[in-house]
Write a protein that binds this DNA or RNA. Sequence first.
DNA 1: CTCCGATGTATCAACTCGATACATCGGAGT
DNA 2: ACTCCGATGTATCGAGTTGATACATCGGAG
Lengths: 192, 192
Amino acid sequence: MSKRSGVLELAVLGLLHESPLHGYELRKRVNALLGPLRAISYGSLYPCLKEMLAAGLLAADDSATDAGAGRRSRIVYKLTAEGKERLQEQLAEGGPSAWEDESFGVRFAFFAQTDADVRLKILEGRRSRLEERREKVTGALGRTREKLDRYTLELQQHGLESVEREVRWLNELIATERNGVAARPRRAPKTS
Amino acid sequence: MSKRSGVLELAVLGLLHESPLHGYELRKRVNALLGPLRAISYGSLYPCLKEMLAAGLLAADDSATDAGAGRRSRIVYKLTAEGKERLQEQLAEGGPSAWEDESFGVRFAFFAQTDADVRLKILEGRRSRLEERREKVTGALGRTREKLDRYTLELQQHGLESVEREVRWLNELIATERNGVAARPRRAPKTS
DNA sequence: CTCCGATGTATCAACTCGATACATCGGAGT
DNA sequence: ACTCCGATGTATCGAGTTGATACATCGGAG
């Protein structure tokens, strides 16, 4: 269950912490969390759940026979005490693994359950990760600008601006974190 | 060689069309093209090259013994006539497969070799693909806004704005395509 | 003169995806 | 009432991909 599934495990722990879920619903929520890119399939989810069960992080409740006799079979998963403990461990982890591309989104999604100092550490780590990437792109772009055709240049430029936008976003978030919890209304809240 | 490697094949064809290359350099350029995300590994590239060789799309030139005796072994690949033909076929393809997430970037990178009408078709296809995605996100966001905590909401919002930015970018490109080939200076070109 | 990182080709176990199979549910249309 | 069909639901498999690793040479820094 390595590679991305480390991320998948965290997503499952975090979602099941909010409420017990069955596989189908769990997958939908995981994919909503991860975004349209990076969506996962059952071929990842089910083996992951199986391993987490075996590891004692989850408990499975097969709610077939219920009131009314007819309910279709679903397997509802929930966290065990060990699972909750594991979740806390993962949320306390503020190292580089937290701000890489694969994991940052999930870590951020569970910031509400994360300590303020860890939040700040992750946001700053993510920012320097992106700035590092920006340096590399601007460097390469400076060296090759003349040799590239219009479209390739446009594509590189757009990629660069995506990174810069992401950095600005992180700057805002870091600033907000630093002055306590100031609300930041993005969309005008319907002034009616 | 299916799935992403359809994309990989196109990237290889396009890059080798510019100049013959060996595997190591080819990989670097493919990854520069695809961006930091979506980078590929040798475990994808080498099998792909092998298949393309077998299919007669590429010719391999092992430049070991050369003038000076000492040159290290490198295998230089170049396009055959069949390979060039295949590249033209691929570049003429303007269907849905061209504007999905996996392939759009590569198709765009080779727009300089693509007919104007195909370019426009791909850009518009990509735009409606993204608008469709935007609808889905705004819908889900409208339904669940109250139930989400601050950070989850912020993450969704950021994702949504990414899509919207992408759509604006495409709008600009489409407009530019429509009035012939007007230059669009993004970064002020060093007015010194 | 040696160490070390970049260049260069290549493979492998572990992991992931898209497709597929199978089955039930609720609603829309006739 | 009946049938169709898409959403819900669990599960597996072949094919493709990754990150690690192996092995070897090159050029430069100390």
